[in-house]
Amino acid sequence: MVKIRYSRSDGFTEELDVAVGESVRDAAIEAGVTGIEGECGGQMNCATCHVYVDRTWLGKTPEIDEIEDAMLDGTACPREDNSRLSCQLRVQPDWEGFTVHLPESQY
C-alpha cells in the first residue's frame, strides 16, 4: 500500500492507502472521496476525473498519451500543465505521499 493524498479545493486533504497498480480515480471512488467523478468508469470518455498533480511530483508520472491529451481539453476547470485524468494515474511503488489537487468542479 502506498499513501496517496487528495487535496480538495476547499483546503481539506484526505489520505488513502492505495494498492500499487490501482488508479488514483478508482481509489477515490471506492473511498468516497468527493471531487473526482469519472462517469465513464475510467475509459477516457468523459474527462470528469480531472486532477492537478502536485508540482513536486511533475516528471514522476507516466507520459500523457494521445487520447488523454485530447480529453484533457474537455475538462470543466481549466487545463494546466499539471492536469491529468486520474483514471490514467496507476499508483507506483515509489509514490508514497503522491499528491493530487482536485479542481473546484468536474462539470
Binding site: E30, G32, G41
Partner: peptide, 12 residues
C-alpha cells in the same frame, strides 16, 4: 470491481 461508489460515499 464495477461499484459506482464505495460504501463510504453513501455513509458520508
Amino acid at each position: 470491481d464495477i461499484a459506482l461508489r464505495g460504501e463510504v460515499f453513501y455513509r458520508r
